[in-house]
Design a protein around this nucleic acid. Structure first.
Lengths: 162, 162
DNA sequence: TCAAGATTGATGCAGCTGCATTTAGTGCGG
DNA sequence: CCGCACTAAATGCAGCTGCATCAATCTTGA
């Protein structure tokens, strides 16, 4: 019987998988019950709303959200279908485009943040002291090769996921 | 601007989502590159192989793996299609059935564990001391309302995910 | 004993994801 | 200016997921 990874490492792996899936599920369920779309929509709206001009190239969105290109393309489709964002022509590069958040999009993002932040508090915040949350961050960061800007983002108005 | 969850809690949430998804991706990719099926198959095979009789009721599998009923049903379909498991009639309850792992299934499980354990070591073990891994476990457990048996499982021959 | 309700497992449908490919446009070297 | 390699985005297809529902069987209680 091979035993490359230590028992501790394996246990950590298992928990990382299980706990994340449970917590994510719980948060997504809360949002859904409140009548909101999936978290990915929120993330996209947040990125769009952060852009000074309110418009972002799909490629940028893709990099920010760490999701594949086709996924971005379809997510934008859905946002546009729902009137939360609009595609704008990109004059300087005719292959590309800009995606601009609409007023409806901004409103939804704000409303979602109420429910979303409450869910984070309920499923994470209330179970961990700030000190422990920071410890958890530190340990997770060592696995993920750094989430760079996460601290900065969290300090602002909404939190991305994934 | 609301600020229900602390900055620390939010940062922990973000990292939990991001790091998990990166690590899971990395491990799944390693397995795929080695020509193996997805992790879910491994988990199922492991559960089946653990059963003393080598046969398990789908309902049991469902509870162990924490996935919905229809998901189990279809996963079993795929395993059976590939000759890794077989459906056996359940005499005592004609609604139900038993799922039994085949020799091919046992072999695949073992081979996958080599690749899987190597991936865990590469993406988790090598980045965290045992002590830190244990700390991580402790913190995660507080979020997940306990993963009960995870420690016991890890001590044996293979580790489930999710 | 038999109807009502619970449990086991399968399945049709819609939506989402990954993969590969396509379409269109850019920019560079010759 | 042309051809070639590269980047931006969209899309067809297959597989997977969740949801709702179904059929079969079991259990319970009047």
């Amino acid at each position: 019987m091979k035993r490359k990874p230590s028992t501790e490492a394996t246990a950590a792996w298992i928990r990382l998988m299980r706990v994340q899936s449970r917590v994510l599920d719980a948060v997504e369920q809360d949002l859904k019950k409140a009548g909101f779309p999936p978290l990915a929509w929120y993330d996209a709206l947040l990125e769009l709303s952060r852009a000074p001009s309110g418009a972002v190239r799909p490629v940028e969105l893709e990099k920010q959200m760490l999701i594949p290109q086709y996924s971005t393309s379809r997510l934008i489709d859905r946002l546009v279908d729902e009137g939360l964002a609009a595609r704008r022509e990109c004059k300087i590069d005719k292959r590309g485009q800009f995606v601009e958040i609409t007023e409806a999009g901004r409103e939804l993002q704000k409303k979602m943040w109420s429910a979303y932040s409450a869910a984070i508090e309920k499923h994470v915040g209330s179970k961990l002291s700030d000190v422990d949350a920071s410890r958890l961050c530190g340990l997770l960061d060592r696995l993920g090769c750094s989430c760079d800007e996460a601290q900065a983002l969290a300090a602002r108005d909404g939190a991305p996921a994934r």
